[in-house]
Design a protein around this nucleic acid. Structure first.
Length: 502
RNA sequence: GUCCCGUUCGUCUAGCCAGGUCAGGACACCGGGUUUUCAUCCCGGCAACAGGGGUUCGAAUCCCCUACGGGACGCCA
């Protein structure tokens, strides 16, 4: 351990900042700080189609809100920069060429169609899908010649037999047979590296000493280990943390849980309580304290104390903890400050006022009208939700809205309006017939502010939760969508609205 | 399907590495008390070593098998 400790998180800027990112960041940060090292934020934006600068900004904002600070990153620089993979392409290209020259990697000219067919065939034969090595036999000359006129990817070679052994700091030795590993693409046809290559190159170049990441990476660790060997570099040590889970034990997903970091901000949680809660997922301080600050976590941090069973994220316990923070860690004046910073400020109230004003006779009318924008979840009865609509129709429309809104890139009044406009058209309904359901689901009342403006102010995370809450209310009364029903609806949806995205 | 990882109350976990505790704490839940209500707070209760084999005087703890859960198998990360 003579080498300075440097850890990192490497989120990819696709979609909303995820709780899992904050979770991994927390332990990477704690480990680095405990050992007097640095914690780095690197943006892995090698997926050109899905990465966006907005998402990158959101990651900074979300992590900062949560109380995670990094020593080096795209926004604050550092001596190992740049910290954005799209700005490091030369570096990857150099190493990819080195790998090709040394015979550790080769160009592959197979078309996506051929690979799809191959995969389909292998799956049909109950084999593990894997590249069959067709382009492996190409001579260096032919490969170089075809590269000038044809699209290609670069794949890394994998030993034909034997076992990859590596040490996971938490689990001990892990053995995976090379026969299980595919000839991984390390450079895509668009010239960008894949995660595996970029990750290894950057971790080396950025002098990362400890790779602390999610358990989902264990099975691709052999590829990484091999790349370090091929490139003649020393491997960092690896520690794979358990994954946060949904109540059904599957990997935490926004389908089943609030997973966006901003959800917790917008729903009125304290960042320090959230961080504390994440810190007790799979970890306990030596003295079993449950309430602890980041500093206290760091002070006593011991990565070996992490327990390996995937912890289920329990909103109820988080709320309990948040309540204790409010009561025990803050005084009333501070709570008022924090409340103001949250939504009780002129800026936010100012956004509501234009809509509320037309409905005001006295000040007393304001807060009841604005209430749904200031609470986590309005309360209403099933009959109110459904109204004149058939319950199953309601469930269907709620689900479709959830899918449609998932696809909505910009979250403003007009865009939202057109989403519902279109939905009414496709369903052959008047907007007036469709909307009462959503008024109730969003605001818990038929007397409320304009719907689209309301949804815009609510933001995507709270909106999703409200749709889901409505759906759950229907299900709890036996009038929701069954699994089969959802499958069926999904197909119908694909036909009439277009493919769904996650 | 193949491989890998995991498994202590419903949930988060302590204990496991260095076998001997009535298996401890917290959330949730239930009951009681304080409070004009509610909440807070206090007290009490419910509730777990996945199963089966070993090793041992003794196993939650060490070993093996089974089951179950999860993850991975992309020109996503």
């Amino acid at each position: 351990m003579s080498q300075p400790v440097r850890t990192r998180i490497a989120p990819s800027p696709t979609g909303a900042p995820h709780l899992g990112t904050a979770y991994m960041a927390l332990f990477n940060l704690a480990f680095a700080r405990k050992h007097g090292g640095q914690f780095i934020l690197r943006i892995e934006d090698t997926d050109r189609k899905r990465s966006s600068i907005e998402s990158e900004k959101a990651i900074f904002e979300a992590l900062r809100w949560a109380g995670i600070e990094w020593d080096e990153g795209p926004d604050c620089g550092g001596q190992y920069g740049p910290y954005r993979q799209s700005e490091r392409l030369d570096l990857y290209e150099r190493e990819i060429n080195r790998l090709i020259e040394k015979g550790h990697a080769y160009r592959c000219f197979c078309t996506p169609q051929r690979l799809n067919e191959l995969r389909a065939k292998q799956i049909a034969n109950k084999e593990t899908p894997r590249y069959d090595g067709l382009c492996l036999s190409l001579s260096q000359e032919e490969s170089a010649r075809r590269a000038k006129s044809e699209p290609f990817v670069v794949r890394m070679k994998i030993p034909e037999s034997g076992t990859c052994e590596f040490t996971d700091e938490l689990r001990g030795q892990v053995n995976i047979e090379w026969s299980q590993i595919d000839h991984q693409v390390i450079r895509k046809s668009d010239g960008f590296p894949t995660y595996h290559l970029a990750n290894v190159v950057d971790d080396h170049e950025m002098a990362i000493s400890h790779v602390i990441r999610g358990e989902e990476w264990i099975s691709s660790t052999p590829k990484h280990v091999l790349l370090y060997q091929y490139l003649g570099w020393k491997c960092p040590s690896f520690a794979h943390l358990p994954l946060l889970r949904n109540p059904d034990k599957s990997k935490l997903s926004k389908r089943k849980n609030p997973t966006g970091i901003f959800y917790f901000r917008d729903a009125g949680f304290l960042p320090e309580a959230l961080l504390n809660y994440l810190g007790m997922m799979g970890y306990t301080l030596p003295d079993q304290r449950e309430i602890f600050s980041l500093e206290e976590l760091i002070e006593t941090f011991d990565i070996k104390r992490i327990s390996l069973g995937g912890p289920i994220f329990d909103l109820a316990k988080l709320k309990w903890l948040n309540g204790r923070y409010l009561r025990e860690k803050l005084n009333p004046v501070e709570v008022i400050d924090r409340l103001q910073a949250w939504k009780a400020n002129p800026e936010f109230l100012g956004k509501i006022m234009p809509f509320a004003l037309q409905r005001l006779e006295t000040f007393s009318d304001f807060f009841p009208l604005a209430q749904f924008l200031l609470s986590e979840q309005p309360i209403y009865a099933l009959e109110e939700l459904v109204g004149k609509m058939e319950p199953e129709q309601s469930a269907k429309f709620l689900k479709i809205a959830e899918w449609e809104l998932e696809k909505t890139a910009s979250w403003d009044r007009d865009t939202l309006s057109s989403v519902f406009q279109r939905m009414a058209e496709v369903e052959d309904l008047k907007l007036k017939q469709l909307l009462p359901l959503f008024f109730m689901a969003m605001s818990g009342s038929t007397v409320s502010l304009p719907l689209f403006d309301g949804i815009a102010l609510l933001g995507p995370d709270l909106t999703r939760m409200r749709l889901r809450h409505a759906l759950e209310l229907l299900s709890a009364n036996g009038q929701g969508l069954s699994k089969k029903g959802i499958k069926k609806l999904e197909k119908e949806y694909a036909n009439r609205y277009g493919e769904r995205i996650d």
